[in-house]
Structure formats: structure tokens, C-alpha cells
Design a protein around this nucleic acid. Structure first.
Length: 592
DNA sequence: CTTAGGG
DNA sequence: CCCTAAG
């Protein structure tokens, strides 16, 4: 089963008779209408036919966009996104599924039907089209890069996957200082007979092509000065970085190029996109995807890494079509669990693409379209009363995708919703700034007052928690090696995500509003922004809250029992919890 | 599917 | 967090 994103025109035929013509058009908002191309997500059935994608598959696509967009965002905000690794995997999985017609669905790895040549061709064509029209490369200025960490890496990693589908990242040789360029790394023209005519149709846009010149061929990062490393970083990831840590930069770049995070901190060397370290590890780390890209990468394009600014988004999509086919991207099933990422978003309300200047985050978050324009796909969620716009991220289920076509409509409507909501963003943004400027504003949040402020003031703490969290498991990447798998086979245990203060607050408020036990309700109404918290999670957390509460209440001495691992819950919340606990204890059956 | 509990 | 038994 492969998921294919194709041009509508191309797919239409396949869809004859199918009423469900789902459109996945992130760029439907405001000024993005320039590009008429519409994407349609379909799945390649075992018999080679294209089948409308399921809702989850669509979500994957959406998230793909989101992730790409959020990449920079994350880097800016430091490693807050705990779930990125998974997102990456999920995303890449989705994409790869399309590409490789190669059976690789987490839950049915070995049971893939055979595909005939025709089908393969078809798929490839579609894929190519998809790639041609898929932009995604976005410039992501690394604003106050608080130097994040692995999390970023995953993002980057992910971006690369994206790129691999949309455009090979040429690793240019004539880079600066001390780069060991492997000249043998010549370009191999795509000799794929199956090449679609469309390929040639796309005019080469060399001029506009983003410059990846800094990352081509064999690069010996060791000898590069920090500045050069930063440049390389930029060329690699498409965004600036202010990080001055040489080691970090090298590692990051290497990881990005090799599409792996298992990069030793020393002896970084990349050859043909393969990590060549002194350690033998290198081989394990390489990724087929990247190899493909490199091979086909155009030789020239030596302009300089001005970064992939706006223009890049456009040109990227054009010339790379011919490649890719040569080598199938093969990859093991990757992790799942896209979820999260919304936590962050909640705290950093997005702004529409209009004010790119205002907030880099918004720009980052936006999704570039074929014409280099950016669109911000968002949705409005209610956060404790007030509505906040957050990027559209799917509320991923853990269940397998279903053949339900109706679900497709959901996506569509969501997109519309997002579009409609874009107007409010500015206002929200201002509010955020305002609130952020006055940290002292934290008042007694005993009741359900100013939730927004609450959230905002807690950002720092949340970030911390998340950072810790994410860094903890950032080490595992694409390969499932060493990953704990659960009974079902392939399913990985959900990440442990420390509950942030804001989450707890929301939970408490939710309980206050809807009553303990209405977890589903609470989840739906108060936790729409935290896609990864399931009703059960809420329930468990509440149970824990009560537990800790009871543990502390007998002896009012709560200072002594504090452990490092556990987050210190503010007294207020604790009291609130207790209050609610009593309430519910007194009148359980009653309807509140 | 949603809850409640146990592990 | 996960899993499962009950509505």
C-alpha cells in the first residue's frame, strides 16, 4: 500500500465514479491561490488501483507539511517538541510508502501484495508529479536558536525526507574552506526508462534553485571554521543558525546529510551522503534515501548559500524530477506516533503569512507552495474558554487507518476552518507579546480566570520539561533497532511525556467544568490542542494528581517529599484538585 | 467507544 | 503509560 499524492488532473481519471474527491490544499488560504494545482491523496491498492486515502493518511500528509514547516519553528523554540522523532518517522513513512511501492506499513510489513510493472510506473509517475508540485522547502531563519538538540535534528531529518521526494539536495563541492570534496561524486543522469514525459516538461529553473552548494560531495567538517559550519548548516537545513558550537554544528550537519542521528561527535565526514566516520558505525547510519538524492544531484549550482529563501520554494520543485527513480527508496518501517507538536503551538500562537517580519515562527510554520509563497495552515482550538489558533495538526489515533472515505471530508473542512481562522492570528500574536513582556502578571489562577496568561507564563517550564523529555529519546532514529516494540508488533510504546504545568492546569479546569470522569469530554473540549493526551491519559493523570494530593495533605509538609523527577505542582492547583476531589467524592452520581 | 482500575 | 474488563 502506498500513499500517493498526485496532481488532481492526473488522478481524476482514477477517481471516476468516486464521489470522494478530497482535496488537500494547504494553500487555499488567502493569497496563495496563485497555484491552481491541487493535491489529492490516494492510496495504491494492492491491485494497483488508486484508492482515496483514508483520513489518517491525509493527516499524514498534512502533518508532513506541518512538520516541514514546524521544523524551523522548533529549532527556534528549542527542543520543545517531544514527539518529533515520531513525527518524522510517521511522515517519512507516509511519504516513503508512496515512493517505494514497497510494502512498508508498520503493521503489515511482510504481507504486501505484489505489484506489477505497470503499477509501479503509475505510482512513480504520480509520485513524480507530487514531487514536482510539492514545495516545502522553506526558509527558516534560526532566530534565537537556543540551541536545541536532537529534536531539531529530527526535524531536519524530516525535512530531508521531504526534500528527497521533492528535490534532491545537491551537495556542491566548491564550498568554502577546507572542504574535502570528492570529485568522483559526479552526477548520474537519470536513466530511468520509465521517466515520465512530464519530467522534461518542467523547465529547469537553475537560476532560482536554492543553493545547496555547501553540502555536496564529501565534506570534511572537521576542518571547517565555525562560520563555514554555519554556512554549511544553512545550506543543509535551509536556515540560519547562530549556534557557535562547532561540535554541535558538525554533528547536526552530518546528521542532516546522512539522515541519521547516530552521528558520532568526532570524525565527521560525509561521502555521497554517507557518513564516513572512523567508526564502523557509519554504514548503519546511512540512509538509502539520501544516497539516491546525491547521485542525481546536479553538479553546478555553485552560487552561494544565500540560504533557501523564498525563491527556493519555487525552484526546488522543478528540476529534480528526473532523478529519484533510479534507486528506490527503501526503508524499514519507521516509528509512528506523530501526535504532539501541538503543545508548542499552543504557546506560540501563529500569525498569518502576512507578517513574516513580525514573527519568524510564523514564517517557519508556514508552508511554502510551488510558487514560493507560504501558507499557514492552522486551526482554531479552544483553550480553556478562549480560542487559539494553532497549526493544523491531526489528532492522530493509534488505530490503523480505515477505508472510511467519509473521513476525508473532515480534513477538507478542517482546512477551511483553518483558512477562516487566519484572521484572528494577528490579534492573538499581539496578546502573546503583551503577556510575555510582563512576567509578573502571574496572578492567582485559582479559578478559571485568565487561562491564557497562565499558559503563557508557564511556557518556560513547559519548555524545560519538554526539552528534557525530548532529548531523552532523541537518540533513536529511523531504524527500529533497539526500539521497544509492543505486542501488536511494530507498535512502539508511547513516549513518556511529562505533564506540563499548563496541561495540568487545563486538566484541572476541565475536571472543574465537566466533572471528573468525563475524560472524553475534557479531552475534546480542553485538550484539543494536545493531541497526544488521550482521555485515558487524562484520567490517569487525574488519578495521579489525587494521589499526590492525598499523599501530601495529611502532613502539610510537602517540601520534603519532592523528588527531582516529578514536577512541582503549584499549591493553587493542588488545592484546586483537592477541592474538586471532595466535590466529586460527595456527589458522584449527580450530574454536574 | 468510553470508563475505571490494575499493572 | 499500557491493558483490559465493563457498560
Amino acid at each position: 500500500m502506498g500513499t500517493v499524492v498526485g496532481n488532481v488532473e492526473e488522478c481524476r481519471e482514477m477517481f471516476e465514479g468516486s464521489a470522494a474527491q478530497t482535496r488537500i490544499t494547504p494553500f487555499s488560504s488567502t493569497n496563495q491561490i496563485k497555484n491552481p494545482v491541487t493535491y489529492k491523496l490516494v492510496r495504491v491498492a494492492g491491485d494497483g488501483r488508486l484508492v482515496p486515502a483514508t483520513d489518517e493518511e491525509i493527516f499524514e500528509v498534512n502533518e508532513t507539511d506541518m512538520h516541514t514547516a514546524s521544523d524551523a519553528c522548533q529549532s527556534v523554540g528549542s527542543l520543545s517538541a517531544q514527539g518529533l522523532p515520531s513525527q518524522l518517522e510517521e511522515t517519512s513513512q507516509g511519504l516513503l510508502q508512496s515512493g517505494c511501492v514497497e510494502p512498508s506499513y508498520t503493521e503489515q510489513v511482510n504481507s504486501q501484495p505484489e505489484y506489477n510493472e505497470q503499477m509501479l510506473q503509475k505510482v512513480e509517475q504520480d509520485e513524480r508529479l507530487a514531487m514536482i508540485h510539492s514545495p516545502h522547502m522553506l526558509s527558516a531563519p534560526d532566530a534565537n536558536s537556543q540551541c536545541c538538540n536532537e529534536t531539531n535534528m529530527f526535524n531536519e531529518d524530516h525535512v530531508h525526507h521531504d526534500s528527497s521526494l521533492q528535490q534532491p539536495i545537491p551537495f556542491s563541492s566548491d564550498v568554502q574552506n577546507g572542504c574535502n570534496v570528492d570529485q568522483s561524486n559526479t552526477v548520474v543522469p537519470c536513466s530511468n526508462a520509465e521517466a515520465s514525459p512530464k519530467e522534461t516538461a518542467a523547465p529547469p529553473a537553475t537560476a532560482q534553485r536554492p543553493d545547496f552548494s555547501l553540502v555536496r560531495g564529501e565534506i570534511c567538517l572537521n576542518n571547517l571554521p565555525i562560520k563555514a559550519l554555519q554556512e554549511t548548516f544553512k545550506a543543509t537545513f535551509g536556515r540560519e543558525t547562530t549556534v557557535k558550537d562547532k561540535t554541535w554544528l558538525k554533528r547536526r550537519i552530518t546528521m542532516g546529510l546522512t539522515n541519521s542521528c547516530n552521528v558520532p561527535t568526532t570524525n565527521l565526514r560525509i561521502t555521497n551522503s554517507k557518513l564516513v566516520g572512523n567508526q564502523d558505525k557509519a554504514n548503519d547510519l546511512t540512509d538509502d534515501v539520501r544516497a539516491t538524492n546525491l547521485k542525481d544531484a546536479p553538479p553546478s549550482s555553485t552560487d552561494n548559500a544565500n540560504g533557501h529563501s523564498n525563491a527556493s520554494g519555487h525552484s526546488l520543485t522543478e528540476d529534480f524530477s528526473s532523478e529519484e527513480r533510479a534507486a528506490k527508496r527503501v526503508r524499514k518501517p519507521t516509528r509512528r506516533y506523530i501526535e504532539e507538536l501541538s503543545e508548542n503551538d499552543e504557546k506560540q500562537p501563529v500569525v498569518t503569512s502576512k507578517d513574516e517580519k513580525l514573527s519568524e515562527k510564523s514564517e517557519v510554520r508556514s508552508i511554502s507552495v510551488s510558487l514560493g509563497k507560504r501558507v499557514t495552515v492552522t486551526r482554531v482550538v479552544s483553550l480553556a474558554g478562549s480560542e487559539i489558533e494553532v497549526p493544523y495538526v491531526s489528532l492522530v489515533r493509534r488505530s490503523r487507518p480505515r477505508e472510511n472515505i467519509m473521513a476525508l471530508m473532515e480534513c477538507h473542512s478542517s482546512c477551511l476552518e483553518a483558512k477562516a481562522s487566519s484572521g484572528e492570528s494577528n490579534m492573538l500574536h499581539k496578546e502573546v507579546l503583551k503577556s510575555a513582556s510582563g512576567p509578573d502578571q502571574k496572578e492567582s489562577a485559582t479559578s478559571s480566570s485568565n487561562n491564557e496568561e497562565d499558559v503563557l507564563t508557564e511556557v518556560d517550564q513547559d519548555m524545560e520539561t519538554e526539552n528534557i523529555d525530548s532529548s531523552g529519546n532523541s537518540s533513536d532514529d529511523n531504524n527500529n533497532i533497539g526500539l521497544p516494540t509492543m505486542q501488536g508488533g511494530g507498535l512502539r510504546r508511547k513516549h513518556h511525556r511529562a505533564w506540563t504545568l499548563s496541561e495540568v492546569t487545563q486538566l484541572v479546569e476541565g475536571v472543574a467544568k465537566y466533572g471528573a470522569g468525563k475524560w472524553s469530554e475534557i479531552k475534546k473540549l480542553s485538550f484539543s490542542s494536545h493531541s497526544y493526551r488521550t482521555p485515558v491519559d487524562l484520567k490517569d493523570k487525574w488519578r495521579n494528581l489525587l494521589r499526590t494530593n492525598f499523599a501530601q495533605s495529611p502532613s502539610n509538609i510537602m517540601g520534603s517529599l519532592k523528588k527531582h523527577g516529578s514536577m512541582d505542582i503549584p499549591m493553587q492547583i493542588l488545592l484546586q484538585v483537592r477541592e474538586l476531589a471532595e466535590k466529586q467524592a460527595l456527589v458522584p452520581p449527580n450530574h454536574r
